[in-house]
Amino acid sequence: MDRNRWPVWKIVNQVQDEGKLLVEVMLNDNQIVELFSRDPDGALSEVVKRYGEPMRRIAVSILMDERDAEECVNDTYLAACKKIPIAKPANLRAYLFRMIRNFAFERLRHDHAKKRGGEAVVTSFEELSECIPDRRRAESADETRLREQMEEFLRQLTKERRAIFLGRFWFMYSVSEIAAQMGKDEKYISNQLYNMKKKLKKYLKRKD
């Protein structure tokens, strides 16, 4: 008997009840991934509900343009329908976020080439350029090597600092958002980021 063929029940709105803690049970990520094979529309509506807003936020952080970001989000949805049934990612959230970052980067590069003359106009995206040692600016990047270097650099950091770094440069959170999420002072987060950027620059220089 194929249990996956059974109907599912789904909550569509929420309860409000004074004094009570209310919890909604939803499809979990693994279930959404499975659903992509059988009902992409349904799976997509779950993705939109759960990750639509954070995905849009990431795209806006990179592109600084609502309309471009919206298009990136739509591109990601389309790609998700095609790729997820095959890839069956273990971490749906990271998979989607990675996908939208890629789309946003591609669009940004395209836009740079087309109309911005290579000048980045973005925040956290641009910020990382401060970490590139002058000597390495001219080199053409070896993608694999650079990824390995980034991983090695991150593994040298403490768990907390790694989370701050990735919060800023992977999840594209603002300093205040990271501070709020970690229960820290904004100044503390800013200082940590400043130090880590300097450290990364040194590290990349050393690895040259």
């Binding site: 980067f105 590069r109 990382l128 990047a141 990824r147 980034m150 991150l154 992977w170």
Partner: peptide, 16 residues
Amino acid sequence: MTEYDLNKALNNIDER
């Protein structure tokens, strides 16, 4: 190397 490369490299780091 540009900030694009660095962001791209970061994008593909170990999922863990």
